[in-house]
């Protein structure tokens, strides 16, 4: 099979990028209303976005496809801090390598690669590590002082590792669900 990206694949990338971002933003908005669940946002986003991601990489199993998706997602997350945009692309590269190890076919490696990719949503939280004060200041802007205080109590620096772990677990669950949904609906319909 030809492993180069064609115009058709690039268009798919754009459309799935839009889908991924909408699902991600919707999940984070719904989950983010309570401070405690806001911390779990990467976890839930991983679960909901899994299906989109799996369908995308089944449809475009080529080198560079995941990287493009990560750039698109990164551009959106970028609006927080530039670090999270770079971080998203790094996650994308890791995901790309993992899926490449499975020769762009293996379902096991696809799951592994989404575990890496789901960590992109941790990006905005990276600010906790680097500049906690300014991060909390921006939270005050959005959600008010009370919310920020709660978030402050919940977030020592090591929490970032927990978040990444949660992202990976969420990614694993999401990918598993995604595979099931693909099998149930899309393979029958002959889409992938």
């Amino acid at each position: 099979m030809d492993n180069k990206l064609k115009t058709k694949d690039l268009i798919s990338a754009g459309i799935f990028g839009a889908m991924y971002i909408i699902v991600m933003v919707a999940t984070v908005t719904v989950v983010g209303f309570i401070p405690i669940t806001y911390i779990f946002a990467p976890f839930f986003a991983g679960i909901t976005c899994g299906t989109v991601y799996m369908l995308y990489i089944m449809k475009v199993p080529k080198r560079g496809a995941i990287l493009i998706l990560s750039i698109l997602v990164g551009l959106v997350i970028l609006s927080g801090t530039w670090i999270s945009g770079v971080y998203a692309v790094i996650c994308g590269i890791i995901a790309e390598i993992l899926f490449g190890m499975g020769n762009y076919k293996s379902m096991k490696f696809a799951t592994a690669s989404f575990c890496a990719f789901a960590c992109t949503t941790v990006g905005p939280f990276l600010a906790i590590l680097i500049a906690k004060d300014s991060f909390l200041a921006s939270v005050v802007q959005y959600y008010g002082q009370e919310y920020a205080d709660k978030l402050d109590a919940l977030t020592p620096s090591w929490i970032i590792l927990v978040l990444i772990a949660l992202g990976i677990i969420g990614g694993f669950i999401g990918a598993t669900i995604g595979k099931k949904i693909l099998k149930k609906h899309f393979e029958k319909a002959g889409v992938v």
Partner: peptide
């Protein structure tokens, strides 16, 4: 490779 996905995404 960036232009096409990007513009499709915004229109989508």
């Amino acid at each position: 490779k960036i232009v096409i996905p990007f513009s499709v995404m915004f229109r989508f």
